[in-house]
Design a protein around this nucleic acid. Structure first.
Lengths: 335, 335
DNA sequence: TTGTATGCGTTATCAA
DNA sequence: TTGATAACGCATACAA
């Protein structure tokens, strides 16, 4: 059992109140008493019990983070950004990892409420009725990251413009002369990545009077392996080879490139490839991947700022759409 | 202000004690009272205040994690493993990110003490006198990850066998006929990566009566860019080209490969390259990188298990050296 | 400037 | 089976 304020008081020959005043840099403490108390604290290595402090103050300095997977650069970068901002503002991070298990999200939301966290940063993938119920009852400031929930919830959200970004990168392909563009994506329960990026792809094609074929469409998961598999499936079943491939993430693009190289195709000479996300390895692989850059760290920072405003009760932004840029590298050929 | 047990009691027409018993699945509650209380809890969305509970019980279910950088696959994978084990055992994670700032480590250690976390997982890079002082006073179970501190501290530690691993992979190069092997490493304040891996390199050379030249040695940081720079420096200053390069991480290897390809060298035909770490992208880049596999997720899990044992006061392992394997891919040629 | 007393929300002890 | 009450460690209003 750790040492308490009471014992410090006894050792220093003062009352608990005086010790408390010293700890909190309060006025009205004689230099003599202050010195004595500080000395005793140093000797004993006393550290105040923040449980008691927070109970008394009825608020904590902890921010809860709910995220689907930690070891993915998108999320870990965002957490990096979050920790930057939150630490500067005196908050700590309670991290909960749902491992892509949607049910756990509800569990964790309740856990965070139990912990009386000051606010919650919620990385959403899909939003179910259970989410609705849990979030509506939570009574804690929440900012949602990654999915546009502005029409469902009264909470602010921070999103990438997935639709526009996908459309832009596919348009870039079209501008380079590509007409037969295949698609390697993910399942559609993830609205932002699975649905919006696909819609962007279709819209770009449509606006340019281009057709797509079901042969050209592959949906898998988020793994690099899935990109490899997708490329394989497409290559093997297709009548006419696509001249370009739009992969909805850089990791998928990397897998696709690997398959092509292993099977004697040159990238971009034979087939061009683009991704989305600008993974940290994308400039370094061969060829460097042309992609959309989102600054995930900045997304985390932005979401944190919005949450802080929310907590402090000042103005409340409803929806923040993060910027993106096309990064042109060497995976696209002009034809 | 959230609703409290007192109000639940009033609404349910029972005493606080009865509500508490219902919450904690205690015996000695009539079905009628139980039902009534549960109903009120459901209606109000009441969630117990864990601050008060923990204060009363004088212990928390929180594990503190101190780590130098989140968005690095080594660390984020380890955190993934940690969250696996800790969640299963009913613990939550309080995450602190030092951003490679050693001074912050001390700050965070104190913060975690203030929070009365149940145990600490400490990812160490270097150990200073300040660390010694802080850790010796902490009075909370700590497990150190990544650096061998068994001779300095009375805390358990979980490490990779960096020396052996480096020696093995360099030996593999030698077995493939390489004699001129360059080194791309990191600064030596990081004992495990900066010192031990270099020592393993030297020892492998020495045991095989091979020489190295100062021209062959480059030390930078952990970025992919640094691998690129290192390769450039070595290529440009060397009299005789090395036939192989040992990079102390896969990311450094990736940077080195990029430089070589950009400058007309073929990997592995002209120069072979190996790394350490088996990054998730290493099988997918071109060529696939021959490397040492550490299972970081498992490292996190192992450290968590040890911490749990420590917390529960059962047997205490002093030092756990994690296993490794050589993964042979396509970045090494036989000569 | 200092100390005493009270309460934060919960659990646990004891008596009813 | 229930309820009143004390206690956890701290901050604070108030009295001295």
């Amino acid at each position: 059992m750790a040492i308490t304020i009471k014992e410090i008081a006894k050792l220093a020959g003062v009352s608990k109140s005086t010790v408390s005043r010293v700890i909190n840099d309060s006025e009205h403490v004689s230099d003599k008493a202050r010195e004595k108390v500080q000395q005793v604290i140093k000797e004993t290595g006393y550290v105040p019990n923040s449980l008691a402090k927070n109970l008394k103050r009825n608020q904590t300095d902890t921010i809860g983070v709910v995220l689907p997977k930690i070891n993915t650069s998108t999320f870990s970068s965002a957490v990096e950004g979050i920790s930057n901002v939150m630490y500067q503002n005196g908050y700590n991070l309670l991290l909960t990892n749902t491992k892509l298990n949607v049910k756990d999200e509800i569990t964790y939301l309740n856990l965070l409420k139990e912990k009386r966290v000051r606010g919650i940063l919620f990385f959403a993938t899909e939003i179910t009725d259970d989410h609705l119920e849990a979030l509506n009852k939570i009574d804690i400031p929440v900012v949602i990251i990654g999915q546009d929930t502005s029409e469902i919830f009264d909470f602010p959200c921070v999103i990438q413009d997935d639709f526009d970004a996908a459309k832009s990168i596919v348009n870039h392909l079209i501008q380079q002369g590509h007409q037969d563009i295949a698609y390697i994506g993910v399942e559609e329960n993830d609205v932002a990545v699975g649905q919006l990026r696909k819609l962007g792809y279709f819209e770009a094609l449509q606006e340019n009077d281009l057709k797509t074929f079901s042969d050209y469409i592959y949906k898998g998961d988020f793994s690099i392996e899935s990109g490899w598999q997708g490329m394989k499936k497409i290559i093997n079943r297709v009548e006419r080879l696509p001249s370009a491939v739009f992969a909805v993430t850089d990791r998928l693009a990397l897998g696709a490139i690997k398959y092509l190289k292993q099977n004697g195709y040159q990238v971009p000479e034979d087939i061009s490839i683009v991704g989305i996300g600008n993974s940290d390895i994308s400039p370094w692989v061969d060829p460097g991947i042309t992609t959309i850059n989102y600054d995930h760290e900045q997304t985390g920072e932005e979401a944190s700022q919005i949450l802080l405003k929310y907590i402090n009760g000042t103005k409340r932004e409803e929806k923040k759409v993060m910027d993106y840029q096309i990064i042109k590298r060497d995976s696209v050929a002009q034809i």
